[in-house]
Computed example of a mutant assay.
Amino acid sequence: MSTASLVFSGRGPVSDATAARVRAAAQELAYAGPNPLASSLRQGRTGTVGVVVEGRLGDAFGDPFALTVLDGLARELDAIPAALLLLPREPGDDSRLLAQLGAAAVDAVVFALCGPRDDPAVDLLAGRGIPMIAAGAPVDPRVPQLLVAERAASAEVARLLVGLGHTRIGHITLPLAPRVPTGPVAPAQVALASYPDGAARALGVLDVAPDARVVQTTIADVASGEQAARLLLGVPAHERPTAIIAQSDVLAAGVLRVAADLGLRVPEDLSVTGFDGLDLPWVDVRLTTVVQDGQARGRALGAMVAAALSGASVRTTHFPTHLRLGETTGPPPTR
């Protein structure tokens, strides 16, 4: 049995002749090799880490920031080694995710991207004794977090624009709750949002510019940024914002497209800011944005997973960001 195991694993000092005899015997018996599930039960590890993705998988693959985080996470987990199992959650419907988590053989679960503050998956996973790591949500004492100072970072952007003289500011948010339509949001609604990252960024803007007009999006992509920007900019010139703070760089890219369509110069007529610090090849100006290194963030999450799997105590920690000044912000127009 041990010789056959060494042959199939490819990790033992077995001669070529012996290996050939084992494979010939296996072929004669129609034996396909060791059962990986049985092997994982013996080892107490599956070699797989689950990653919860909000929305369809296609949405995550279309989000440049999500891809950088997943890339960094995968690179860090290579050292364990562990594979990633992506588990999508339909917004507002936990049933499919809970069914998958209930049946999935995983060593740990990472909530790597934005998600709901309260999550029934936590109770399920805690009941199975599976370690969890999150990047801001779900908010639960059983889930160590890698946190970004979302509110403070957005407040810094708003202070920059107010300091430049802007008094009419628009704010385009990530989805604040599942299945939301793109449209205006009252400031009082922001604090009640179920997605804490979008809520914190919006509150940071409102801390500094309480009269800012807030528009939430359905999904963080360029098209949603365009749709939200048209709602903010499609008003008489004397009511139009002179600055728009977008909660992601891809949303800001949508704003830049609409500004060009409307003949608005950036930053002479309209200042635009983003969040993430992405290198977007279709944006031909250097965006003023809050930089958070997505790959480094993914690696940090991976390091927390590795520590948890080694039996170490994992605590909530903070991930740094910084404001990068670009070519898309300036004083408001004087006319």
Rank of each mutant, 00 (worst) to 15 (best):
D269R: 11
V222W: 06
A188C: 03
Y195V: 05
P184H: 05
V205I: 11
D221G: 13
T218S: 11
R201L: 05
I244Y: 10
D197Q: 12
P184W: 01
P187T: 01
P178C: 07
Q189M: 09
G263R: 13
A243L: 12
A252T: 11
P178A: 09
G234K: 01
P196F: 04
A202E: 04
V205Y: 03
R240T: 06
A200S: 06
G234Q: 02
A253W: 07
Q227Y: 03
E226A: 01
A209E: 07
R265G: 14
I219L: 15
V185K: 00
A228M: 07
E268H: 12
R257A: 13
D221P: 11
P184K: 02
P178D: 07
D269L: 12
A199Q: 15
D261K: 02
L192W: 06
S194T: 14
V266E: 10
A259H: 11
L270W: 12
I244T: 05
P196C: 07
A252H: 12
L262M: 14
L262G: 13
L251M: 10
P210W: 03
V250I: 14
P267C: 01
P181K: 03
P178L: 09
G204R: 02
R240P: 15
I245A: 05
V208S: 09
H238Q: 15
V180Q: 15
V215Q: 05
P236K: 06
D269M: 05
D249H: 04
A188D: 06
A237T: 10
L233D: 04
P210C: 05
L231K: 00
A260W: 10
A220V: 14
V208I: 12
T218Y: 02
V266S: 08
I244S: 12
V214I: 13
P184F: 02
D197L: 12
V235A: 07
A202M: 02
P184G: 02
G183P: 01
A191H: 03
T242N: 02
V215S: 08
V180T: 14
R257T: 10
V214K: 00
T217V: 04
D221T: 00
D221W: 08
P267S: 02
A193F: 01
A193Q: 03
G254N: 07
A209D: 06
A220M: 09
Y195P: 08
A243H: 10
G234S: 03
D261C: 06
V208W: 05
P210V: 00
L251H: 12
V258T: 15
G225I: 00
I245L: 14
A209Y: 04
L270Y: 11
V250Q: 09
D221S: 10
V205F: 04
E226Q: 11
R257N: 14
V235E: 08
G254K: 06
I219T: 09
Q227H: 14
P187E: 05
D197C: 07
A188P: 01
A237D: 15
T217C: 13
R213T: 08
G263V: 08
D197G: 08
L192H: 15
P210Q: 04
A243F: 07
V190R: 01
V222K: 06
E226W: 00
A243T: 14
E239N: 01
A259G: 09
S248Q: 12
E268R: 12
V215M: 07
D197I: 03
P241A: 08
A252Y: 10
G183L: 00
Q247S: 15
G263E: 11
P267W: 01
L203S: 04
Q189P: 11
